[in-house]
Design a protein around this nucleic acid. Structure first.
Lengths: 193, 193
DNA sequence: ACGAATTTTGCAACGTGTTCTAATCCTGCA
DNA sequence: TGCAGGATTAGAACACGTTGCAAAATTCGT
């Protein structure tokens, strides 16, 4: 099962979503197609699992070295910058993962919701200027209501920008730009410092 | 070609994205599969055309009866509310259209960009408290920089919320709620009036 | 009204996600 | 050691987006 995920990620890194042909994944991981479908209900499910691991990496990174900076704007922008950079280690993989989020069925919705909450928690922590507490319950109750609202909004912006990028609307750098601009708008009233 | 789009929309209204089987669309519109592919490069392309018509409806609606209200917050929330209500006339169709936006290839990206700009123009107009000028160039230069930034941010929130809804993350009403909350945060500093 | 160019048609074929099945391979227990 | 129950396999089969192609229908200039 580790092997399955690794094979899928390997293929996605090379050729993105379409390159993850489940027959190939099965071959590469020395597993029959049926077995693969026993572990993962669909292609999206499989890629979502990879995304889960990616988020875990981000969490670990932010616990070890929390976003620093005097202003909340700086800190939360840094979280998104790091998250984006992490994803962009392999743009093709990133595209595949984003797509998996965007087309999931209701089956996968639960996982997506979980991922959202985890990232939101990271942003709230950055706004609050504390290291994220991975042990805290995922009920979206950390931080103040305002902080949670800011985090939710920026998360939407980030996601939407990622989709836009993955579809070919704009280049890599623009993703973080969008988030930064929105964060400025919210936290600074829109002024450029 | 009208017939093609109508057939596709009809099927999408019943069963969403998956129900739009291009063979069925071809049958229903008395057209061969090959012809269909001459007009539309892909399933997404076809649905995006339907979305284009939906946006045109929204534009016409907002020109005839611009969003009213004393506060910018009120007006721009109303734009999103009307847009969402328009889409939700048929939730299945809405799901199909949202999905088409989220998975387009670079070929379709241009159209998506155009749609974005048109909606953004509508929001800027509402913020500015003038009826939208559909004749204005689509270069995203209407309104002040701040207004454009607000519109861009809220558009991201709306889109992301729509994707979340279409994937099964949350119910219909939540979509506008998300936008309203973000708009409050930006325009009112987050206070509930 | 004729012939050339273009469009449309009908249909077969391919790729890939997904499902199904019968055979085979464990694994743990008596 | 032998066996029951579950997991795994190989591979066929199905659905649907997409492509290709040769024949038929339509359009258009003259």
């Amino acid at each position: 099962m580790r092997r399955i995920v690794d094979a899928a990620v390997g293929l996605a890194e090379r050729g993105g979503f379409e390159a993850v042909r489940l027959r190939d994944v099965a071959d590469r991981s020395d597993v029959a197609l049926g077995t693969l479908y026993k572990y993962f209900r669909s292609k999206e499910d499989l890629l979502l699992f990879a995304l889960h691991e990616e988020v875990a990496r981000l969490e670990a990174d932010l616990v070890k070295r929390p976003a620093a900076g005097r202003a909340a704007l700086q800190r939360c922008t840094e979280v998104f910058a790091r998250a984006t950079r992490g994803l962009m280690r392999s743009p093709q993989l990133a595209r595949a993962l984003v797509r998996a989020m965007a087309v999931g069925d209701p089956d996968t919705a639960v996982q997506i919701a979980g991922l959202q909450l985890r990232i939101q928690r990271l942003i709230v922590a950055a706004l609050h200027d504390v290291p994220p507490d991975l042990g805290a319950p995922l009920d979206g109750n950390g931080g103040s209501a305002r902080e949670r609202q800011i985090a939710a909004t920026l998360l939407h912006v980030w996601f939407s920008a990622l989709v836009g990028w993955s579809v070919g609307l704009h280049p890599t750098e623009t993703v973080v730009e969008h988030v930064r601009n929105s964060a400025r708008l919210i936290l600074n009233g829109g002024k450029h410092e």
